[in-house]
Simulated assay, not measured.
Amino acid sequence: MNQRIGYARVSTEDQHLDLQRDALQKAGCGIIYEEAASGKSATRPELEQCRKALRSGDTLVVWRLDRLGRSLPDLVQIVADLERSGISFESLTEKIETRSAAGKLVFHVFAALAEFERSLIRERTHAGLAAARARGRSGGRKPKLGEKQVREIKALLRDPEIQVADVARRYGVSRTTLYKHVGVVAPRHS
């Protein structure tokens, strides 16, 4: 038996699910999974339970697209996973559903736009890094230790009486950072 299963989410505990719940019930959802979780949160246990309950032929219904995915690429991935399992998807507010050919087309246009957006971001990032390199700047975090400090540390560590942990503490870095900046030093007990 094909079911219409709803998923409702609010971002904070003080928001209410009533509007979503009413819309999902009106749309024929007999079961509704509900949770209060930030859209940015990767852990949404009720969504996971909902996805486990869905079977081929069922339809996952949400009030609005942003209730399901953390981002457009995330939403596209979730719907693609559902589609591979033979599960339809429907968003009530945007009037998007993937049961019909037209509905699938609309959703795949969304997917193409999401991929296009990712490509543009990637291109802009690479162009920005190339421009920075051309001006002599490199990306990434600044090294924790300067050249002068590395020379001082190397000199200190030549003395077998000085412990690596003491030097690390003195310079406010970890032993791993020392090994990375100073090169391979035989670990000494500290």
Score class of each variant (00 low, 15 high):
Gly146Pro: 07
Arg133Asp: 06
Arg9Met: 05
Lys180Asp: 01
Arg118Cys: 07
Leu19Met: 11
Gln163Tyr: 12
Thr176Gln: 15
Arg9Lys: 08
Arg44Asp: 01
Gly146Ser: 15
Ser11Asp: 02
Arg151Ala: 13
Thr93Ile: 00
Arg135Gly: 12
Arg135Pro: 00
Ser56Arg: 13
Phe107Gly: 01
Gln149Asn: 13
Asp58Gly: 05
Leu120Phe: 09
Gly28Ile: 06
Arg151Thr: 09
Glu123Leu: 08
Val76Arg: 07
Arg170Thr: 12
Arg84Pro: 01
Ile96Asn: 07
Ile78Leu: 14
Arg99Val: 05
Glu115Ala: 14
Tyr7Met: 03
Ala114His: 04
Ala132Ile: 07
Asn2Val: 15
Cys29Met: 08
Asp66Gly: 01
Ile121Cys: 02
Phe110Gly: 08
Glu83Cys: 04
Ser41Tyr: 05
Arg9Trp: 05
Lys142Glu: 10
Val184Thr: 15
Leu68Pro: 00
His189Val: 14
Ser91Gly: 02
Arg169Ala: 13
Val62Tyr: 00
Arg9Tyr: 05
Ser138Asp: 02
Ala101Met: 11
Ile5His: 02
Leu17Val: 03
Gly103Thr: 11
Tyr171Phe: 15
Glu90Asp: 07
Pro73Phe: 01
Glu115Gly: 10
Ile31His: 11
Thr176Pro: 00
Tyr179Val: 06
Gly39Cys: 05
Arg51Asp: 08
Glu48Val: 09
Glu13Ser: 13
Thr176Lys: 14
Gly140Lys: 03
Gly57Ile: 06
Arg133Ala: 14
Asp74Ile: 03
Ile96Pro: 01
Ser190Cys: 11
Ile87Tyr: 10
Glu147Val: 15
His16Val: 09
Thr43Trp: 14
Val182His: 08
Glu48Thr: 10
Thr176Trp: 11
Asp18His: 10
Ile87Glu: 02
Gln49Val: 03
Glu123Tyr: 08
Gly136His: 06
Lys144Met: 09
Glu48Met: 04
Ala102Leu: 14
